[in-house]
């Protein structure tokens, strides 16, 4: 079961790589980047998961040692929180570039954009 979770997360990563490499539509390439980001975030969260773990938030009247004994790993979560927001900026910039390309060439297809150069 544990292996299956990791393998499926890597399969999701694989789908993103496939969309990035084999697709010719700019929208699909942006979708591939987004799926890659999802897969990496998912894998990092799963690595930090503990069986029956609580969120790393100190409850009322709880001691820190008790929290450390039963909480999930907070460090991957802090990293992934940064990664989520940066993924949004990457998507926004890619969408801006795609809109500009569409305004200039009238298509999302990379083959047509390559042929229309000049």
């Amino acid at each position: 079961m544990g292996i299956a979770v990791y393998v499926l997360a890597f399969g999701l990563l694989l789908i993103g790589v496939y969309a990035l490499v084999a697709k010719k539509n700019i929208v699909r390439i942006i979708i591939g980047i987004a799926i890659l980001g999802y897969a990496v975030n998912l894998l990092l969260v799963l690595v930090g998961y503990r069986h029956g773990g609580t969120p790393p938030i100190l409850a009322d009247g709880q001691t820190s040692a008790d929290l450390a004994a039963r909480s999930v790993d907070p460090l991957p979560q802090a990293m992934v929180l940064t990664s989520i927001v940066i993924g949004l900026s990457v998507t926004a910039l890619a969408v801006a570039l795609a809109i500009r390309l569409y305004d200039k060439y009238g298509t999302f297809d990379m083959n047509d954009i390559r042929n229309l150069r000049g």
Binding site: A34, N41, V45, L46, G48, Y49, R50, G53, T54, P55, P56, I57, S71, V72, Q77, V80, L81, I84, V85, G87, L88, T91, A92
Partner: peptide, 18 residues
Amino acid sequence: LAGAPDLAFPQVLVEVIT
């Protein structure tokens, strides 16, 4: 579900914007 509510809320927000 995996004990990361701090990630779930930004993920929803980012997802709506995307």
